[in-house]
């Protein structure tokens, strides 16, 4: 039911773990299935210098988390924000229809991490 790429990212997920000195953290629960993802970003000169994730979820949730970190590593925050769940699914050679909602989790966690960074680093009013 899963593509070879999904299985590869499930079996060998990229960028798993925590960043103790993260500049932004996004934690999301998936309202559809209860999966949970936590994404950590390290930002330097408005660019994602490092990214790590932790996911409690199915194979698709783990693979989309892993692929998301690969897609946004090194990107500027604006570029990273434009990465959609569709991009993630396509990069994994597709997801089964009933697992498409899993890709929301990674996209939402990323947006939350960027928002967290921006809130913390907002210029004083």
């Amino acid at each position: 039911m899963y593509s070879e790429k999904v299985m590869d990212h499930f079996q060998h997920p990229r960028n798993v773990g925590q960043l103790p000195d993260a500049d932004g953290i996004g934690e999301m629960g998936n309202p559809v299935c209860g999966d949970i993802m936590k994404l950590y970003i390290k930002v330097r000169d408005d660019r994602i210098q490092d990214v790590k994730f932790q996911t409690f979820g199915c194979g698709a949730a783990i693979a989309t988390s892993s692929m998301m970190t690969e897609l946004v590593m090194g990107k500027t925050l604006d570029e990273a924000e434009r990465v959609t769940r569709k991009n993630v699914a396509e990069a994994l050679d597709g997801l089964p229809p009933n697992k498409m909602h899993c890709s929301n989790l990674a996209a939402d966690a990323l947006h939350k991490a960027i928002e967290d960074y921006r809130t913390k680093n907002a210029p004083p009013a």
Binding site: F56, C58, G59
Partner: peptide, 14 residues
């Protein structure tokens, strides 16, 4: 605790 079912099933399947 802390682990989802399908991820265990896939891993055992391999």
């Amino acid at each position: 605790a802390a682990v989802e079912g399908e991820s265990i099933i896939l891993s055992l399947d391999m």
